[in-house]
Computed example of a mutant assay.
Amino acid sequence: MIELDDVGYSYGGGELLSHVSVRLAPGSFHFLTGPSGAGKTTLLKLCYGALTPTSGVVRAFDGDLRGLDRGQTALLRRRMGVVHQDCRFLDHLPLADNIALPLIVSGRDMAQESANLKELMGWVGLTARADARPPELSGGERQRAALARAVILSPDVVLADEPTGNVDWEMSMRLLTLLVELNKMGKTVLIASHDLGLIRAAKSQVQARVLRISNRQLQLAGADL
């Protein structure tokens, strides 16, 4: 699905990532850990083409991301669901419409998709907030909405940057269950997270690899997690 081959990335004159090689195979489940500022968000951005590596090659679905034009990049990103930390929404639209935006952009029949939208909003506990505008939402509600929007098209790959950072434990487990179910359907999942409790919970449900960024490089974390 996604492969980084000897990738390096420099920012502001300093090297943030160096000699990173990893393959996210179809149907695999990965966690990405490391201290703040280690480069977790940067690595995710490299995976979906928001950043271009300083060295090395990033491939997605067997294609080199450097060779894609704007149209090809747009089509590629429809196959990737990305949960950003900053949770950007259109403030003038109700929450349900914000979550449904990928369906609208891709030309889906909204009448046929309405049941799926309602079910997904129920999964993330936002049914009662369907008509709320984004400025009215709490941080946790925005985070749940971001995850719902990222998976609404049932993408082949889900890349999530701290998807449970602003929610309580019960909701974290609910969101984890959704991601695990997507993985069991064959989706590739990569989650950047500081939460060791979440990682341990996931490892009891799914075969998850844990990757750690340390000293600018990517390592396979030990079995103690």
Rank of each mutant, 00 (worst) to 15 (best):
P163Q: 04
S138C: 05
E170I: 14
I152K: 10
L179A: 01
T188N: 09
T188K: 10
L175N: 01
K184T: 07
V189N: 06
N166A: 14
I199G: 11
P155M: 08
L147I: 05
A150G: 09
Q143M: 01
K187D: 04
M173C: 15
A160L: 02
P155Q: 10
D168W: 09
E170L: 14
V180K: 01
M173Y: 12
E162W: 11
T164G: 04
M185A: 15
G186N: 10
S154N: 14
A146D: 12
S138G: 12
V189S: 11
V167K: 02
G139K: 07
N166C: 02
L182S: 13
L198V: 11
G197N: 15
V157I: 15
S204C: 11
T188M: 08
I191P: 01
S172G: 15
A145F: 02
E162N: 10
G165F: 08
G140I: 03
A145S: 12
R200K: 14
A160H: 10
K187R: 15
G140F: 05
A201I: 03
L182N: 11
E181Q: 14
K184V: 06
L179Q: 00
K203V: 05
S154I: 07
G186D: 09
L178H: 00
E162S: 11
V151D: 07
I191Y: 07
D168M: 02
N183L: 08
S204F: 03
R142H: 12
A146Q: 10
L159K: 04
L153Y: 08
K203L: 09
D195G: 00
R144C: 04
K203E: 10
G139V: 03
L198H: 05
K187Y: 05
G197I: 08
R144Q: 01
M171Q: 12
